[in-house]
Amino acid sequence: MLDAPAISLRNITNSFGGHVVHRGLDLDVRKGEILGVIGASGSGKSVLLRTIVGLRRQQAGEVSVLGVNLTRAPASAWEEARRHWGVLFQDGALFSSLTVKENVQAQFRRVVRLPGEALDELAALKISLVGLPPEAGNKLPAELSGGMRKRAGLARALALDPDILLLDEPTAGLDPIGAADFDLLIRTLSKSLGLTVFLVTHDIDTLYAVCDRVAVLEDKRISNVGRIEELLRVDDAWIREYFLGPRGRAAGNARGGLSAAPCPENGSSLALRGG
C-alpha cells in the first residue's frame, strides 16, 4: 500500500459516441512527483483528469488512487478518496455567490463542525499560503482578476491538505509574470507540503519550470513518460515538434539549456506576488 503510486490508470478506454478518446491508456503518477500531461488540443487531457476524479466514468479500465481501486468501489471509498485530492479547474470554478473566504471554508464545513473563529483562522492561513493578500478573502470571485481567481481556487483545493493536487491548465489565460509566479507557487507548495501533482497544461514554460516528469498523450494513449531531457531523446515527430518547434525552443533556451529550473525547497519562503 505504501509503495502504491498516487494515481494509477490501467487500460483506460473513453469514448463519446463513436469517437474514441482513450484506448488502453496506462499511466502511473508516483508519490510526491509533479507530472505534467501534454497532448494536442482535443486529445483528451481534461477528459483524463475528469476520469480520475470520477466526473466521468470510463468505458473500460481501472483507476486507482493511493492504492485503492475506485472502479467498482463503494461510495465510502470515493468519499475517502475525495479527502485525498484537491482539484483546480481552469478558471478556478469558485462558487460565485460566496466570497473567497467562504469558498475555502465550504471545504471545512463539508467534513467537520468548527467554530467560526477557527474557520476564519484556517481560511486566512490557506489564503496567505497561495499568496493572496488578506483583503481578498472578503471579495466575491467576480471582483478578482483571473490570476487571483486561480489562486483562490488553489486555496480551496488545498483546504483539507490533500495528498494529490489535480490542476487543469493552471496557467492558461495568465500574463507571463502571473504565470511564472503561479508556476513557482505550485512548485513550492508541492515540495513543502509533499504533494503529488497531476497537471494538465499547454504551457511549455510550466513544463520546464514545474514538472518532474512529463507524460505525452498521443494516439489515444500515453506514448511516453519521462523527464523532458529523456523525452527529447525519443524519436517521435510530435514530441520533437512540441519541444523543438519555435515556441518550445524559446522556452527551453530561456531555461539555460534544457535543464529544469532550480526550485526553492524552503517552505517558509512563500512571499509571492498576489495575482
Binding site: T99, K101, D120, A124, L129, P134, G137, G267
Partner: peptide, 19 residues
C-alpha cells in the same frame, strides 16, 4: 522534519480583515 515544515508553513498566517 516534515512535521516541522508543516509547523513552519502554518506560521505564515495572516488575518482576513472583517468585512
Amino acid at each position: 522534519a516534515e512535521a516541522r515544515a508543516i509547523l513552519d508553513i502554518s506560521l505564515a498566517k495572516t488575518r482576513v480583515p472583517p468585512p
